[in-house]
Design a protein around this nucleic acid. Sequence first.
DNA 1: AAAGATGCGTCAACGATGCTGACGCAATTC
DNA 2: GAATTGCGTCAGCATCGTTGACGCATCTTT
Lengths: 188, 188
Amino acid sequence: MSDARAPIKPNVAMMATSPLGQQSAGTNLLFLREDEIRSAQDLLFFAYRDFTAAADMILTELGLGRAHHRALHFIGRNPGIAVTDLLGLLRITKQSLARVLSQLVEDGYVAQTTGRADRRQRLLTLTDQGQALERRLFEQQRERLATAYREAGSGSVEGFRRVMRGIMDEQARAYIDGADDAARRRKG
Amino acid sequence: MSDARAPIKPNVAMMATSPLGQQSAGTNLLFLREDEIRSAQDLLFFAYRDFTAAADMILTELGLGRAHHRALHFIGRNPGIAVTDLLGLLRITKQSLARVLSQLVEDGYVAQTTGRADRRQRLLTLTDQGQALERRLFEQQRERLATAYREAGSGSVEGFRRVMRGIMDEQARAYIDGADDAARRRKG
DNA sequence: AAAGATGCGTCAACGATGCTGACGCAATTC
DNA sequence: GAATTGCGTCAGCATCGTTGACGCATCTTT
């Protein structure tokens, strides 16, 4: 038998993507770089999978899904955000958001108020109940991240942030940088 | 009007989750830590969203989805992997995998061979066509990661890896560590 | 050799979350 | 006054996850 369900190890040594049996130093270096990238693919998949797992369980019990969490998260972080701006962050269609949002409003997690400057806008905020749920979900992920930060060491966090920032597109970077600005402003 | 669709900035200064108008140094520090975690939530969402976007477009043209890519990725990295082991990596039900896998086999991307030691097993490998597709998808993500690594600086990559590793669960870490072992063995 | 466990596939039904396309209405802008 | 924008909604569809229940071949255990 094949050791049953012990965690298997990726057989990167097999180098299935290259027909070369022998490798020069050059191709070997190239290969190492390629494997480093493939390893990063693994990292992103597993980290994201396990990062969301705990919160998903709570959501399921409430009849909600991950999409609801995303909306709660960004509304909580941007109180009074307009629907179109939220759509820009999530990058989904308004029809998809509508389904999620109307359920959050109906269940009393999100409140809509008419915009003062532009009365067409529906500005979104979390209700007390919405804040409570967001916090509950947040605590799950906080735990995981706090542990990861602790184990990785404080020196690693900056590198983590820099690489993650580099992966996302320009618009997302601007958003992230804006958050950093706000934090700096508050601190200083 | 509200500046239309310029990237909005998260209003973290509003501190909607705390009723405190004034903050002591202690609560402010606590808040900063909390905001650091919330910021990491942003990072994971945006990075994952944009990391997968390019490959998704190719997949859509071929009538495939992200789930197919995940299967191709892990089969490519683990040639001859058994179905149950693949299920353990993806953490989905065998019914979900079956749908994806049977399509990949039918379209000629994946080959199944009966296990030698255990004839119940269907060992999975990429066909030449499967390798070609996986490589095409890989190149999309390689580009993004290479840019991110370059911009972040080589010193950041180790921190990135350490934090990402810390986020995932024990089993995933063992898998990741196994990949590292294999790379080290090949290099040394 | 019989009994049980395991690996894998499959039928059926359902739920969450994305998509396109088309309209309607109110409010703002030109 | 006409065009545009912000938002909601109806209708239909695809992907990909779920549970539950079987069936069959093959290994393992008794």
